[in-house]
Amino acid sequence: EEEEKKKEEIARLLGVSKEDVERILKKNNLDIEQLLRRVQREN
């Protein structure tokens, strides 16, 4: 699934687990696209 791939990509870029990414998304109330763009910009 596309969303899972995005979570895995974010996890890889941040050096965290996919579960961490899911927690970040919930905690910050971000959607996956916003987080992915933010992470890609910083790297």
Rank of each mutant, 00 (worst) to 15 (best):
N43A: 14
K6D: 04
E4P: 02
E8K: 10
R38L: 15
I10D: 00
R12V: 05
Q40Y: 05
E22Y: 03
D20F: 14
I32W: 04
R37G: 07
N28M: 15
E4H: 06
L36C: 04
E2S: 12
N28L: 15
K27Y: 11
E22F: 02
K7I: 12
L35E: 01
N43E: 11
E2P: 08
E8T: 10
N29D: 08
N43P: 09
Q40V: 08
E42F: 06
A11H: 01
V39D: 01
E33G: 05
E8G: 09
E22L: 06
D31N: 13
L25Y: 02
A11D: 00
L30Q: 05
V16A: 04
K27S: 12
I10A: 09
L36M: 06
L13D: 01
N28S: 14
E42P: 08
L35Q: 01
N29F: 07
E19G: 09
E8M: 14
D31W: 03
D31S: 15
E19T: 10
L35F: 07
L30M: 13
V21L: 05
L36V: 02
E19D: 11
S17A: 07
E2H: 09
E22I: 07
V16Y: 04
R37N: 12
N28G: 11
Q40A: 07
K18R: 10
E4Q: 07
L25S: 02
N29Q: 08
E4R: 07
D31R: 06
R37S: 08
K18I: 12
V16N: 02
K7T: 04
E2R: 08
E22A: 07
G15Q: 06
K5R: 14
E42G: 09
L30V: 08
Q34R: 07
V39K: 02
L36Q: 02
L30F: 08
N29C: 09
V39S: 06
I10Y: 03
E19I: 10
K26G: 04
L25P: 00
L36P: 00
R12G: 05
G15L: 03
L14S: 01
R12Y: 07
R41W: 07
K27H: 12
E9K: 10
E42C: 15
L36F: 06
D20G: 05
L36S: 02
L35S: 00
E19V: 09
K6R: 07
D20N: 06
R37A: 14
E42N: 11
E33M: 04
L14R: 01
K5F: 11
E3T: 12
L30K: 02
E22P: 02
N43Y: 12
D31Q: 07
Q34Y: 06
L13P: 00
A11Q: 03
Q40T: 10
E33V: 04
V39Y: 04
I10L: 09
I10W: 02
V39I: 14
E33C: 12
E19Y: 09
E2G: 11
V21G: 00
L36I: 04
G15N: 08
E4C: 08
I10R: 00
S17T: 14
K7V: 08
G15W: 03
V21M: 02
K27E: 15
E3I: 14
R38D: 15
D20Q: 13
G15Y: 03
K18Q: 05
K18F: 06
V39R: 02
V16S: 03
V21F: 02
L35Y: 03
N43W: 08
L35N: 00
K26P: 00
L36E: 03
S17M: 05
K6N: 06
I32P: 13
E33D: 15
R38Q: 15
L25F: 02
E8F: 12
R12H: 06
E1W: 13
R37F: 04
